[in-house]
Simulated scan of single mutants.
Amino acid sequence: MEKSYAGIETAFDSLDHLNATMKKNILKSKGITGLSKMKIADFDQALYDNFSEEELASLFSIRGYKITPKGEQALKEHQAIIDRHPKKNL
């Protein structure tokens, strides 16, 4: 991160790291109703509609990392190093 190969995601970008119960609790804290009828995708939309980045960021600390264009370029330039490491079957 100090060389800008990766960065920390925003709170909104990190929503995929939260489960439905966590999202539901965040929405409840703001007084949002109708949560029992919502699907998971609806939770995300309700969060976007009712919270600013700053508000949401203050409610949970889980953040993901994302690779930057500089990091992607470094990976391409050093593919031989990556190929020497074991791969996981996903």
Rank of each mutant, 00 (worst) to 15 (best):
Y48T: 02
L56F: 13
H78F: 04
R84P: 03
A80S: 14
I81Y: 09
Y5N: 06
D13G: 14
A74I: 03
K39C: 09
A41H: 11
E53L: 07
A41S: 14
I8A: 04
T68N: 09
M22N: 03
A41F: 02
L35N: 01
I8H: 04
K88W: 11
E72M: 12
Y65W: 10
G31R: 02
G71T: 10
A57T: 12
L18T: 08
G31T: 10
I67N: 00
L47T: 01
G64S: 15
I62Y: 10
S29N: 05
I81L: 14
K23V: 01
L90V: 12
E72C: 06
K28Y: 03
N25C: 04
K76C: 08
I81D: 09
K87S: 12
K24A: 10
S52F: 03
K88Q: 13
G71V: 10
L75I: 14
K30D: 04
S58C: 08
K66C: 07
F60K: 07
S58I: 11
D16L: 10
S52T: 15
S36C: 04
Q79V: 10
K66V: 00
Q45N: 09
E55D: 11
G34M: 02
A57G: 15
R63Q: 09
K37E: 12
K87W: 00
I81W: 07
R84V: 08
T33W: 00
S14I: 02
M22R: 13
F43I: 00
A74T: 01
H17D: 03
K23A: 03
L15K: 08
E2Q: 05
A74V: 11
S14Y: 07
A57D: 15
Y5A: 00
F60V: 06
D13F: 00
A11C: 09
E77K: 14
A20N: 03
K70C: 00
I32K: 00
H78M: 07
G31I: 09
Q79A: 13
E55R: 00
I8T: 15
K70T: 12
S29Y: 04
A41Q: 12
K66P: 04
D49W: 09
L56Y: 11
L90P: 02
A41K: 13
Q45E: 12
T10N: 03
L27R: 06
K24H: 14
G71E: 01
I32H: 05
K66S: 14
Q45M: 08
L15R: 04
G31M: 01
E53W: 07
M22Q: 15
Y65I: 15
D83H: 11
R84I: 05
K24S: 14
A6N: 04
S4F: 11
P69I: 05
H78L: 05
K70M: 03
S58N: 12
S14D: 00
K66Y: 15
E72Q: 11
